[in-house]
């Protein structure tokens, strides 16, 4: 059973490494190409695998520590797999002024998931975000790529049901 299982895992690991190497080689030739490279790897794989930071470093003629520093500096980059979907609650000032503090405090109760965790059944991650540029019609919530305005605890569950794919 184990030996049967290890083959596809090996193949998968090899393909992850290949994706990282190819993407890194493509961006290493452009000036300041590291961020575009990391964005593309994350878009492809869902995260930036720690095990292959060295491959990126080699392509960019950097140390692994430098690449690690960049990956961990930016909030957008993840080094472990995450749920494929996300719900982000804007918690910045303009949304606070229109009710996001209540939303922030009550969201775990209405959705059944804590911040920075993945929902047990619905395959999305709940996150805080600081400004989505929808400040005139807050509180703002982003579900995957779509922003919703004037969201409150009463309207959120319905929105999530419609927008999140189980």
């Amino acid at each position: 059973m184990l030996s049967n299982h290890s083959l596809p895992v090996k193949a998968m690991k090899a393909s992850v490494e290949k994706t990282v190497e190819q993407t890194a080689a493509k961006h290493a030739v452009s000036q300041g190409g590291l961020l575009p490279c990391l964005h593309e790897i994350q878009a492809e794989l869902g995260y930036i695998p720690n095990a292959h930071l060295e491959n990126i470093a080699t392509a960019f003629s950097l140390s692994t520590a430098e690449v690690h520093g960049v990956v961990t500096f930016y909030h957008d980059f993840r080094t472990s797999p995450s749920a494929p979907q996300s719900i982000q609650i804007c918690c910045a000032e303009a949304c606070q002024a229109s009710g996001s503090r209540e939303l922030e405090a009550g969201v775990a109760g209405v959705l059944g998931v804590e911040f920075d965790e993945t929902h047990p059944t619905d395959n999305y991650r709940l996150e805080r975000v600081y400004c989505l540029g929808n400040c005139a019609c807050g509180p703002s919530v982003r579900i995957n790529d779509d922003v919703y305005g004037r969201v409150d605890l009463a309207s959120l569950p319905q929105l999530v049901t419609e927008a999140v794919q189980s």
């Binding site: 590291l34 575009p36 500096f73 957008d76």
Partner: peptide, 26 residues
Amino acid sequence: VRMGAGSYICGEETALLNSLEGKRGV
């Protein structure tokens, strides 16, 4: 067009330049 990566400080011009160079936004 180059995309940021969720760092507020990169709106500060010198941090932005470092970020554009592919470095930490310091």
